[in-house]
């Protein structure tokens, strides 16, 4: 993002670091669960107006599986996991020991498997951050949706837009062994946690 809207370079780096720490814990958790390698990319940090969220993270018409969780700490942030359909089905297969074939139909069992993966991811992500912040952070029960990426991301966008003008979204991309397209974890910290993160890392 060119427009940093008042954030210093070092603050953005600190937020990226949070994404990397959380993302790595989350990916370790998935890797232990499915016994496959999980590769994590370097995190990005987006600072933008809330209405740009739905279009900022790829083709908005692509069908994806999304898991949404509230991140409770002193404020209420958002936590999302977005998976391309094929990756979602693969993850669910590894977890439940089933085998999907060509039409890649997504059924009830897959929904709850993906919800669980999202829950495990978010819990380990947040517990990693909570160790830095020295207080408890907890995710809410997960909600799963399958649909257009733009439509799914509108939900966190409108929740965040109610709270503040500008949002900070920390994205960590990851891939599992045999899928080419990455899924990603998105953490949108609330302003209170954001400040706390920056204070704890000593950049403010």
């Amino acid at each position: 993002m060119v427009d940093n809207s008042g954030y210093k370079e070092i603050e953005i780096d600190a937020l990226k670091e949070i994404g990397s720490i959380g993302g790595l814990h989350a990916s370790t958790a998935i890797a232990n669960l499915i016994k496959k390698d999980v590769m994590v990319e370097v995190s990005d940090c987006f600072i933008a107006k809330a209405e740009t969220i739905p279009t900022s993270f790829g083709d908005r018409e692509e069908i994806v599986a999304g898991v949404y969780l509230d991140a409770y700490s002193k404020g209420k942030g958002c936590m999302m996991m977005i998976l391309p359909m094929k990756m979602a089905v693969k993850l669910s297969d590894y977890m439940t020991g089933r085998q999907h074939h060509e039409p890649w139909l997504f059924d009830e069992e897959d929904y709850s498997a993906i919800a669980e993966i999202g829950n495990i991811c978010a819990s380990s992500y947040l517990s990693a951050i909570s160790k830095i912040l020295d207080h408890v952070m907890l995710p809410s029960p997960p909600g799963v949706a399958v649909g257009m990426l733009g439509a799914i991301l509108q939900y966190p966008a409108s929740l965040v837009a109610e709270m503040s003008d500008y949002i900070v979204a920390i994205r960590t991309e990851f891939t599992i062994e045999d899928t080419r397209y990455p899924g990603f974890i998105l953490y949108i910290p609330d302003p209170v946690s954001q400040r706390e993160i920056l204070e704890k890392l000593g950049v403010v």
Binding site: E51, T52, P54, T55, R60, E61, G147, M148, L149, G150, A151, I152, L153, Q154, Y155, A157, S158
Partner: peptide, 23 residues
């Protein structure tokens, strides 16, 4: 028409919203 936008147009022009979720 993107999120948080609106357009008004004369007749032959078509308008379109991609990916209406909770919007």
């Amino acid at each position: 028409v993107g999120v948080a936008e609106f357009y008004t147009v004369p007749a032959p022009q078509m308008l379109m919203c991609i990916g209406l979720g909770s919007c």
